[in-house]
Amino acid sequence: METKTFLVVDDSATMRQLICLTLRRVKGCQVVEAQDGVEAAALLRSGSFDLVIADIKMPNMDGLALVKHIRQDLKLTDLPVVIITTKGEDGDRDEGLRAGANAYLTKPLSGPMLLQLIERLFPEKSNVAS
């Protein structure tokens, strides 16, 4: 099975760990973590990724700026990007989707919802281990 590499971008170590723990259930997937948009952008420039999951609210470069950077500067038009939002960030969420994010998840994060979203984004095969 083809290995997929996911990039998880969140300044919250708790969220990163929870997302990584959930993504471990996706067969043949590798997870790389970044604390903010700047670190994520550097990783995206140097490596190849199949999915980016980014929080909206982050220091240095937030999720919105990261989405714009991915689409406009890095020209990674086919790379799926999922943004994570909380209440009060509805405007940011819409802006994120307009900027090119493929989907969004809301906090508190639900593991099954994340796995469902991944199945939707990668429908070619059922990757999720039950």
Binding site: S12, T14, M15, K87, K107, P108, L109
Partner: peptide, 10 residues
């Protein structure tokens, strides 16, 4: 983070 991200308290 636990209260906001995991429990969902605003």
């Amino acid at each position: 983070e636990i209260l906001i991200d995991l429990v969902g308290v605003e």
